[in-house]
Nucleic acid binder design. Structure first.
Lengths: 122, 122
DNA sequence: CCGTAAGTTCAAAATCTATTGAACTATTGA
DNA sequence: TCAATAGTTCAATAGATTTTGAACTTACGG
């Protein structure tokens, strides 16, 4: 798999996006990214509760290759963000409905105050 | 895989739905179902352009197991329909945005008059 | 320069998914 | 009853995805 390139927004494929979002680890990454309100970038290391470093590299690459996330290198870190505008231009509403669906699903699984509980679990 | 049972609507899992929708054959089935305006059921046999009988049985089972479709037996036929209300209750807007996205993707691939061309290709 | 921290790469293994063909069941119509 | 139709089941295969560990690169601080 080639690692750093991002697909241009008009070449993002629906099936690839859905496949990227259909894995629990990657869905976890995406809703964690979506949960950040003001600043929207995250260091890869902040997702260590979702898997090993090696494995996360793999999942980040899939999300990036599918056009779901953007990655930027700075020093020895990578900063990840959702490609909201690009996705919304190509498939209007899709990312938002998936994020909302994922949040409501998470709420049902963990009835006691989603965000706080997720933080504590790290 | 267990074949006829359908999950109750409150047990439909997001990851399973997205995974079901992330395969081109199954996405094809879903948009074909969505393209029917008045009557909403289809015989399995109407999808033979999308794969072999055996293979379609497999894909129909996946869609059904994920909660995306409903299957009803009548004689030797099965009638398939989308579980629109159930999906919409659980994940509002999701099915519609995916269908719209799939249609716009199909339109870009086949620029000459989507529906007519699809019919002719059978 | 040295050590550490953040991620990547590669190859192997483990696990899933999709596809096929042959044999099967169940229903229908003649 | 017979043959045909519609779809299922099963086992085998091919192929793709996920996961892991060890070795690696690159940047940063002291």
């Amino acid at each position: 798999m080639s690692y750093l390139p991002h697909p241009p927004s008009d070449q993002i494929e629906l099936a690839a996006v859905l496949e990227a979002l259909s894995d629990p680890t990657r869905l976890g990454i995406v809703i964690d990214l979506a949960d950040r309100k003001t600043e929207w970038e995250a260091r890869c290391g902040e997702f260590s509760h979702l898997g090993s470093k090696t494995n996360l590299t793999y999942h980040f690459a899939k999300l990036r290759a599918a056009g779901v996330t953007h990655a930027r290198a700075e020093g020895t870190s990578r900063f990840i963000s959702l490609r909201r505008e690009d996705l919304d231009a190509r498939f209007p509403g899709l990312l938002d409905t998936v994020i909302k669906a994922a949040r409501s699903a998470a709420r049902k699984r963990e009835p006691a105050s989603g965000r706080a509980v997720r933080k504590a679990a790290r």
